[in-house]
Design a protein around this nucleic acid. Structure first.
Length: 258
DNA sequence: ATGGTGGAAGGTCCA
């Protein structure tokens, strides 16, 4: 049984101690916001994450896979085509390739003609689509901060967010197109019915995130169909949003028989 | 309609 976690930590150096609260064998982080030589290597080792595969970047972005067991065949790819640190993958001991993604947020204005960030986000997902249309490996887990809430009950109000980046039709269409490439299984929706609200992110800009509960499901774990029957449990760590100096995202942990 | 908060950097950008 392997427990795999994903979390947009929004600064690894600031929140590394919170990782002690996550019960996982492999933790995939996004928005580490540090360079590789600035990683808190020893703190991570003390938590049991002896094997550290990071693709850092100064101040922004940054993805890493931190594991209690050795992984191999590390690969970093340039989805979106601007060399930001938004993807890293590794092979798990059974040969499944684990991809950690940090999809661009895309800015505020949902118009590709005036907002280059939004255009970049759409291209990023199109590149993911192309990659998984003819992947070189067979079995995959993809996870991370996809910055898209694809379904109606992945946001607090689908109608009010219809023109808000993270839930616009062009993003949702591209994500569903990606979803069809390999017949992906959306792990969270295996455990939480599609008719129920389900969130992994609450804005810092809400006075009381729990009371207003205007969340979005931006973080995802998808597996290829061969792993569907191997899924054992799934946990969105909502209490993490109340940790001291919280990230605006909470960790998601999936337990999979690999 | 607006601004609300947070992290890192560093005289702002991105989320």
């Amino acid at each position: 049984m392997t427990k795999i976690a994903t979390w947009n930590i929004n600064s690894l150096r600031l929140r590394v101690s919170h990782l002690a609260n996550i019960d996982a064998d492999v933790i995939c982080l996004q928005e580490m916001k540090c360079q590789n030589h600035e990683l808190p290597v020893n703190e991570l080792k003390k938590l049991g994450f002896e094997y550290q595969y990071a693709r850092g970047e100064k101040a922004y972005n940054g993805v890493g896979i931190f594991s209690k067991v050795p992984l191999n065949d590390i690969e970093t790819l340039d989805f979106g085509g601007n060399s930001q640190s938004r993807h890293i993958s590794a092979k798990l001991p059974n040969g499944t390739r684990l991809h950690n993604f940090y999809v661009p947020a895309g800015g505020d204005e949902p118009d590709v003609n005036i907002n280059l960030s939004y255009a970049h986000k759409l291209k990023f997902v199109e590149d993911m689509n192309a990659y998984f249309t003819s992947p070189k490996d067979k079995n995959h887990i993809i996870l991370g901060d996809f910055n898209i809430a694809p379904f109606e009950h992945d946001v607090w109000s689908s109608r009010q967010l219809a023109n808000v980046i993270s839930h616009t039709p062009p993003e949702r269409e591209r994500m569903l197109s990606l979803y069809k490439t390999l017949g992906w299984v959306d792990v969270s929706r295996q455990f939480v019915p599609q008719t129920e609200k389900c969130y992994s992110w609450w804005s810092y800009r809400n006075k009381d995130w729990k009371k207003s509960n205007r969340g979005r499901r931006l973080d995802h774990i998808w597996v290829t169909p061969n792993l569907q029957s191997q899924l054992k449990s799934h946990h969105i760590m909502q209490p993490a949003r109340d940790w001291e100096k919280p990230s605006d995202h909470v960790p998601i942990v999936a337990e999979i028989l690999l």
